[in-house]
Design a protein around this nucleic acid. Sequence first.
DNA 1: CATGAATGAGCGTTCATTCAT
DNA 2: GATGAATGAACGCTCATTCAT
Lengths: 215, 215, 215, 215
Amino acid sequence: MSGVFAARARSQGKKIRTRAGLMDAAAEAFARTGIEAASINAIAHAADVSNGTFYNHFRDKDEILAAVAFGIARDFAERIDEAMSDIEDSAQRVSFGTRQFIALATSEPTWGLALTRAVWALPELRREVETFARADLDRGVRDGTFRVEIDDLLVDLFMSMVLMAIYLRASGEANEDIGARVAEHQLRLLGVSPARARRASHCDWVPLSITGSSQ
Amino acid sequence: MSGVFAARARSQGKKIRTRAGLMDAAAEAFARTGIEAASINAIAHAADVSNGTFYNHFRDKDEILAAVAFGIARDFAERIDEAMSDIEDSAQRVSFGTRQFIALATSEPTWGLALTRAVWALPELRREVETFARADLDRGVRDGTFRVEIDDLLVDLFMSMVLMAIYLRASGEANEDIGARVAEHQLRLLGVSPARARRASHCDWVPLSITGSSQ
Amino acid sequence: MSGVFAARARSQGKKIRTRAGLMDAAAEAFARTGIEAASINAIAHAADVSNGTFYNHFRDKDEILAAVAFGIARDFAERIDEAMSDIEDSAQRVSFGTRQFIALATSEPTWGLALTRAVWALPELRREVETFARADLDRGVRDGTFRVEIDDLLVDLFMSMVLMAIYLRASGEANEDIGARVAEHQLRLLGVSPARARRASHCDWVPLSITGSSQ
Amino acid sequence: MSGVFAARARSQGKKIRTRAGLMDAAAEAFARTGIEAASINAIAHAADVSNGTFYNHFRDKDEILAAVAFGIARDFAERIDEAMSDIEDSAQRVSFGTRQFIALATSEPTWGLALTRAVWALPELRREVETFARADLDRGVRDGTFRVEIDDLLVDLFMSMVLMAIYLRASGEANEDIGARVAEHQLRLLGVSPARARRASHCDWVPLSITGSSQ
DNA sequence: CATGAATGAGCGTTCATTCAT
DNA sequence: GATGAATGAACGCTCATTCAT
């Protein structure tokens, strides 16, 4: 039952471990029942601590939500960033990012779903994640790969496609290749030719593997 | 103060009018506070009936949510369908639909927001709305306007863009022309040339009047 | 267990009876444990209703406190007022009022103690009760019985003596004649000669009898 | 920030200093929020120690309340006693005591308010304070200044007047001269002639300085 | 002694739901 | 069919108290 946060905190002090346990339990609850329906009592219970302990670590649900969501976002961003450090082609970078993001959300559905739920409750989170994606979009425009103007709206639409894909995958409505297909659509939206979009988004790749691997 | 459902039910029997009043109150509550936070007591109170009366018409919140959401979706679909009965060009039909949808959600925020909130709680609702949009997408493929294969995923992505736009508009992050800009992106995604996409999505139009509406 | 409020409400509708039951339970709890320590749960339980019912009648503890305290104060005032309608002498009126007040607080210790506790939490209550007492003080000054200027401070001190007496009586530190003795001290404070003070405050009298008697 | 108890304990061992710090923090909390609302956690935090430390010094809130209240009472008594060591006239002694007591409660509201709040929770405290006042009352009777029998009730009433005055002062309902006015009323209650009561209670005086005090 | 994380009973409050009228 | 008082489980949260460090 110990999740990713707990795994990271295994060698830390007790306070940090308890906190991580709460965050894992919260991520799980947010993913499974949604943010509103996840009660603090249930989170504490799932983390195997008493309800009062929750309040030694977080002021309220908003606070743990932010900690969980930004924690997940940062972790995803770091893992993806690192994995694509040697990719030069902008189209490949963007499609790789999308595919990895969706793959991560799939292989760790708890985190993936929690993230999609949180993104609507925390506008700053959306902007945080978008900032990360935007770097490669801007790069692609500079090197002539993309033929559109990158503005906030475009990035938001870009994001909405990824979120929808995660949702579809998590709800069992889509299968494994959805990442590649979404990436292909995104590239076309960015003005990449259909042929190149297809090529860049369906190339071989290695999905980031399991939990805690980046540590 | 009486909303759209009530207006429609004005000439009907009392039972139907009470039901419509509850639905209007519910739509308003869902839009304003979200689905979870809207209490049945508050809905009944806003509809000027006692809380017990609610249960003479709906088993629980899910039931009224479905009634309200599908009612709104059908209303939107009918109004938009009718308004574009004389548009032949597939690109224009699609962009017109997107723009009208976003405009309706904006000019009638009660219904627009209620719909976007419900769409994540009721997967069937999403499919219902998509079915409606899909007709024009298929038509555009048949007449050669769109150069992509229309599958479930594409329609979902199409939908996700509209939902993101409504969200941005409702949260004050976007201004009036977001509909046209989203439509343009959508057309490009469908394989329409940038020039034509721009033309088709920024042409003159008349936002649907608020006929018999909630205002 | 049914208290005074309930007795008064016996012939009323159910809602009023429930409300009265809660008020009796609250008065009892306030008297026994103090205002802060009296929990809403305990009040509801003592009134033999569920905790939720409390909130159908009162918004919070402050609201029921005010209802109880002003209800008791009005009841005391009315009963005393009526009982001394035929007393003409100002010194006798004042001493009679004090004695009856203390006697009431003693024969109905629940109400008496609740009142003394509430008076510190509700400044308006203190002023309300003092207004009632002040009429006779002013009257005594006008007819020459009292030789002091009646100002707010004097009335507050007058009140503090009664409150202390009720407290002493309720806590078992004083016996029955405390009312007469306090009244005597009060009259001397008002400038009445010791002899007359003694006479006016120790004359025969009939303590107001039992609960609900005024009905 | 360090209060009076801490000042007294400055040269003592660490244990005593910690204890004094807790008492100062408790006095402040009792005064500011009332006894019930002052949480042990908050007291410990204000005293800059961990909550667990509290229990090394006091069993529970009642215990620290008693320690604080009796400590303050003793301090007040000593300071007033000393200040009036050269006053011979009984009327002046009594009025001086009342005025100083009220003035202390006002100039050191932390202690003054804490004391008035504690007096209702700790009957022994009231008797302790009254014992101290009673000496001068008895003396006045012996030397013929007062013409009443001093019994427990009279002393209680005497006390109630002082407490009311402190309450009025602390709640902003009374101004500075309330001490003198209350003293005058008290003297009249004790049988002193109005003229002499006025003279004895309004004479010049020096409010006790805040020696080593909480300021 | 001091620490502070953990505990869990209990608080005030909300709310979906029932049912007698 | 409409009413609305009553219900009680569940919520978020506080706090006195314990105990391993």
